[in-house]
């Protein structure tokens, strides 16, 4: 157990050195902030951007506050996934390249402890960044549109946090089996985009897939339907545990 705590501390120190603790929350906050702002000023932006014929009358429906928050989440589905993948991709593969992984494995720590400590450290940074951004966009939505019951926001935030954690676990697992950072990024981005497209095509067949969590998070905001939510959460947690153990095995086997 002491080895595990030391490893977690080492991971946090590494994140502070690479300034990840600073830039990841800021990037998330900026990404989520722009959504309520652009939706609120959409009419003015369209007018300034030109392209509208003289005298055209624009009737923009004002989106409800729930729809604004849902659109924040759908923006995170594309850009946020990309940022998480890029931020986490090099955790294991870089250590293997510069030899520090081999050094750590000579110490009395198991590979599961190594993978677990990385997951805990990176996952907590990513989830806290997401929560910062989400709460900030909630604040803006309340100012610009109208208030939403905080309970709904919290529910969707928890569901989406689990989804963020799942992305982190996936990226760390692929970081353990692949060596090139580019390959890790491409594999993960393809995996998540294919899974979410498949989820929208075969919604009944894949209703328990982890990518459906983001849809569930949006649904809790808009119409509070929780069809298939428990199944999704269970499947995601089971997959996360399996990927953790598989990642630990991969670290053991690829010991150079």
């Amino acid at each position: 157990m002491r080895g595990f705590i030391t490893l977690v501390k080492k991971e946090y120190l590494g994140s502070i050195r690479s300034k990840k603790v600073i830039w990841l929350p800021i990037v998330f906050m900026l990404m989520t902030l722009t959504q309520p702002l652009t939706l609120y000023y959409m009419e003015d932006i369209l007018k300034m951007g030109g392209g509208l014929p003289e005298g055209s009358v624009l009737q923009m429906p004002v989106p409800s506050a729930e729809e604004v928050m849902a659109s924040v989440l759908s923006q995170l589905n594309t850009l946020g996934v990309l940022v998480i993948v890029i931020a986490v991709m090099s955790t294991i593969s870089d250590e293997r390249k510069n030899g520090s992984l081999t050094f750590i494995l000579t110490r009395p720590v198991s590979s599961l402890q190594i993978v677990g400590s990385k997951t805990l450290a990176e996952g907590s940074i990513v989830v806290i960044s997401f929560i910062c951004g989400y709460l900030l966009s909630y604040y803006y939505t309340v100012i610009l549109f109208s208030t939403i019951p905080i309970q709904q926001v919290m529910e969707s935030m928890l569901i989406y946090s689990l989804y963020c954690l799942f992305i982190v676990v996936c990226v760390i697992f692929s970081s353990a089996i692949l060596t090139s950072n580019g390959a890790i990024a491409i594999v993960n981005i393809l995996f998540f985009s294919v899974l979410s497209i498949a989820g929208s095509l075969f919604s009944e067949f894949l209703k328990w897939s982890p990518t459906e969590l983001s849809n569930h998070a949006m649904n809790t905001l808009i119409d509070e339907s929780t069809h298939g939510l428990t199944g999704s959460i269970l499947v995601t947690i089971i997959l996360m545990i399996l990927l953790l153990f598989a990642g630990a095995r991969a670290v053991d086997q690829k010991r150079v």
Binding site: K19, I22, W23, I26, V27, M29, L30, L33, T34, L37, L136
Partner: peptide, 13 residues
């Protein structure tokens, strides 16, 4: 707030 966040990011970098 947007400008402040942007500034922190640029200065840190």
């Amino acid at each position: 707030p947007v400008i402040i966040l942007q500034l922190i990011l640029v200065v840190t970098a």
